[in-house]
Amino acid sequence: MNKLKRLPPIHAISAFESVARLGSFTAAAGELNLGQSAISKQIKTLEEQTKAPLFMRHARGVELTNAGKELLNSVQPALHQLSTGIEQVRQRHDAHTVTVIATHAVAHYWLFPRVIAFNRIHPEITVSIRSDNAIDASKVAEFDFGILYGEGDWPLLDTQPLFTEFVYPVCHPELNLREPRQPEDLVHMPLIELDSTEWDCIGWHDWFRSFGVEYQPAENSLNFNQVTLAYEAARRGLGVALGWHFMVKEDLRSNTLKRVGSFVFESGKKDYLVHNTHLPLKASANEFREWLLTSV
């Protein structure tokens, strides 16, 4: 038997979630632009299908039963995922919307300023950015474009290089440090650690290894799992962080940050603007692509 046939109507599930979240039939009716009696009928339908009371009614409003709490824990993530999926499909096929997926750091420090500049020239086109550190080639098909880090060897994707990876130590200009003469001089400095085990990004171990230096982090060192957090800690004078050139160049120019030493890690990898070769680009996406590549 098809399990979907046993699901309650979506409007009954939506009414239940609204009442549970707002704690009131009246408030839910206002949010969903329905009458209170209509909300009550939706909840009654849902209670009949689940064969359990979902709310306890009292003078101050309503309260979820244990069955209601259990149902809400299942319903809310499902509704959110459904809403997100529908919105992504809508944007993907909207002639005036361009969707792009990138890592948090690339989205915030490289892509976002360019989207603002593009919007001034093309206010009729909306560029929607999704930031996700778990981005890979398989996710790009859900968007008009992706920005992927690597060597450009994705067979099903059209690739255009955007910028090369250069990584060097940075800190606040007022942080009192002796200028390092060689990479190993940094080992005993207050280094801000970056834990990138869940995604493709170098840390201090990789950076030192590229110079042939063995490194063991201090027990009391600051540790973050996002480039953006480590970078912000450096901007606030908490230590020395790895700085990706595309992120830090404006802060270096404005003297918000300074380089620590002249040592640069060059991985040979790049960030690429990519899109699925089997899906033709709509006019707005072509416009954005051409503008972005000429702005690099």
Results as ranks from 00 to 15, higher is better:
residue 190 P to K: 00
residue 152 G to I: 13
residue 228 T to Y: 10
residue 62 V to K: 01
residue 288 F to T: 02
residue 234 A to T: 10
residue 122 H to E: 03
residue 159 T to S: 15
residue 31 E to A: 13
residue 104 H to D: 09
residue 44 K to Y: 09
residue 59 A to Y: 09
residue 214 E to P: 00
residue 40 S to Y: 07
residue 259 R to P: 01
residue 95 A to M: 08
residue 232 E to D: 14
residue 240 V to H: 04
residue 178 R to P: 00
residue 112 F to A: 14
residue 109 Y to D: 08
residue 106 V to I: 15
residue 69 K to T: 12
residue 23 G to T: 06
residue 283 A to H: 10
residue 173 P to H: 05
residue 10 I to M: 13
residue 15 A to E: 07
residue 12 A to N: 09
residue 170 V to C: 07
residue 20 A to V: 06
residue 255 N to W: 10
residue 171 C to K: 03
residue 148 L to S: 06
residue 153 D to F: 08
residue 192 I to C: 04
residue 208 F to K: 04
residue 41 K to I: 09
residue 105 A to V: 08
residue 153 D to R: 13
residue 218 A to Q: 13
residue 45 T to S: 10
residue 266 E to A: 10
residue 150 G to N: 04
residue 132 D to F: 15
residue 218 A to D: 11
residue 132 D to L: 06
residue 257 L to A: 13
residue 272 Y to R: 02
residue 115 V to S: 03
residue 273 L to C: 11
residue 123 P to E: 00
residue 218 A to K: 13
residue 55 F to W: 02
residue 35 G to N: 12
residue 137 A to V: 04
residue 220 N to V: 00
residue 184 E to P: 00
residue 188 H to K: 09
residue 103 T to E: 11
residue 6 R to E: 11
residue 154 W to C: 08
residue 51 K to V: 07
residue 152 G to F: 11
residue 172 H to T: 03
residue 269 K to D: 01
residue 94 D to Q: 08
residue 102 A to T: 01
residue 219 E to S: 12
residue 36 Q to K: 13
residue 116 I to F: 07
residue 136 D to R: 10
residue 76 Q to G: 00
residue 5 K to H: 11
residue 248 V to Q: 11
residue 191 L to D: 03
residue 63 E to S: 12
residue 124 E to N: 12
residue 195 D to Y: 01
residue 185 D to H: 11
residue 294 T to V: 08
residue 260 V to E: 05
residue 214 E to V: 05
residue 273 L to G: 07
residue 211 F to Q: 04
residue 94 D to M: 04
residue 99 T to H: 01
residue 168 Y to I: 09
